[in-house]
């Protein structure tokens, strides 16, 4: 349902950030680009502020753990939406296990604040520059990041509160 003048976002991103684009994918105008994490903030600004792309709305941030399936373990996935053109765009950023951190975009979209906390909570990806990087779903004192593929499925942590 996208308008015609918003179909070639991949080409525009490639023209602007040629070297940092690792991969791209387009299935029935469902466009995806994978970029290096160093250029994340520039790409985000470009997507948001370029006329003709205008991805003003950050819909979601999530992460994927490709434990032992890809050389770079994590991928942080951003979903954008253009209110002007009624089109969507997906941005993926690989994050390694050793330096498991990525720039925060909390100053570009305020909505990213809690998404980033959630990813930190469940996957353990650190967001540099985040103003308040605390756990959001699990409680303080919970050890580990439960959505990581190497978190033991049977592991139970002691209960909290007045009972203990």
């Amino acid at each position: 349902m996208s308008d015609s003048n918003n179909k070639e976002i991949i080409e525009k991103v490639k023209a602007e950030f040629g070297d940092s684009v690792l991969e791209d994918h387009n299935f029935r105008n469902d466009q995806t680009v994978t970029v290096k994490k160093e250029t994340l903030r520039e790409v985000c600004k470009f997507l948001r502020d370029t006329p003709g792309i205008s991805m003003k709305f950050l819909m979601d941030i999530t992460a994927v753990d490709y434990h032992k399936k890809k050389p770079v373990r994590f991928e942080v996935v951003y979903h954008f939406y253009s209110l002007e053109f009624n089109s969507r765009f997906r941005l993926k950023v690989p994050v390694g296990e050793k330096e498991c951190e990525i720039d925060s975009i909390h100053d570009l979209w305020k909505a990213s604040n809690w998404y980033e906390r959630e990813i930190w909570d469940l996957y353990g990806v650190k967001f540099l520059g985040h103003p308040d990087l605390r756990r959001i779903l699990m409680y303080e004192g919970f050890k580990g990041h439960p959505l990581r593929k190497d978190y033991p499925i049977n592991k139970r942590q002691p209960m909290i509160g007045p009972l203990n």
Binding site: L137, M138, I160, G161, P162, L163
Partner: peptide, 13 residues
């Protein structure tokens, strides 16, 4: 949930 358990206990008390 683990996080709700203390709340439940308090309401019960």
């Amino acid at each position: 949930s683990q996080k709700m358990a203390p709340v439940l206990k308090q309401i019960y008390d």
